[in-house]
Design a binder for these strands. Structure first.
Lengths: 134, 134
DNA sequence: CTTATATAGATGCATTTGCATCTATATTGA
DNA sequence: TCAATATAGATGCAAATGCATCTATATAAG
């Protein structure tokens, strides 16, 4: 709990100080970029980011207002649309990554040995997706 | 990240379904109860719970309104006060614990082996207090 | 002693979050 | 075909959060 809270706050601070958007934008931009030219449906993004539906909706609105994504009508399903990353969005994501990565690198290195990091990595993979079993 | 988010949401759901207050109340009540009859100063509580100052202030107001703590004037320092747990507060904390503990037990058992749990425990202790070094 | 600064704690205001609900299209079933 | 239900996504409103600031007392410095 504390590790994840601290990590988040360190990363958010670093991004803010660099004048960049918050971390949730990075996660969203990464998934949207990976989706390529077809784009991705908001409900798919929601599943991958583990966000509530209204959270996804609002996040996309803001990212769109900033010009980092665009919405394209969906041929198969008139209810929704797909979102595509723009050139500006790609640039922004690329700009955010080094800041993000540097934080993680420093925090991990100053907290544990490489062997411990491997252990933690193994344990982390035990948690896959929400199983709704409890 | 995902593990801590899921754990939190499972615990919060269990508490809500049992008609009990949210987890932050438990943490606060536990620390206040541990402080005994002398009580604890809000700023000390803040340090232990890693909450922002205004968050602590508001949390205490609500818990006080619910009758689980009471404020006593502070002889040593006229600026502040100490908070003490009430009988009702002790009862509430005691009622919350089994719900909380059961969630943790089930989640850990169905996610990992006892050996892995020990490993995780060791890794978790690497994170002590905020060091503000990054 | 008097003024300047630091600390404890509360709070106004803007933003964010969560819940419930709404619209619109899709799918199912009689 | 047409009603009933399900799903995609948006949004109004209330509650929670974060920031900045405020009051009051404590401590330090001249």
């Amino acid at each position: 709990m504390r590790a994840s809270e601290r990590t988040l706050s360190v990363v958010e601070n670093a991004l803010r100080e660099a004048g960049l958007p918050e971390l949730s934008w990075y996660d969203a931009l990464l998934e949207i970029e990976k989706a390529g030219t077809e784009g991705i449906r908001p409900y798919e993004l929601r599943e991958r980011l583990l966000l509530p539906q209204y959270g996804t909706s609002r996040l996309l609105s803001k990212i769109e207002d900033a010009g980092f994504i665009k919405r394209i009508p969906c041929a198969k399903d008139g209810r929704g649309h797909a979102v595509q990353i723009t050139k500006a969005g790609q640039d922004m994501r690329a700009q955010m990554w080094p800041v993000y990565a540097q934080c993680l690198k420093v925090m991990i290195e100053q907290t544990m040995t490489p062997a411990q990091a491997d252990q933690l990595c193994d344990l982390a993979t035990l948690i896959q997706r929400p199983s709704d079993t409890v």
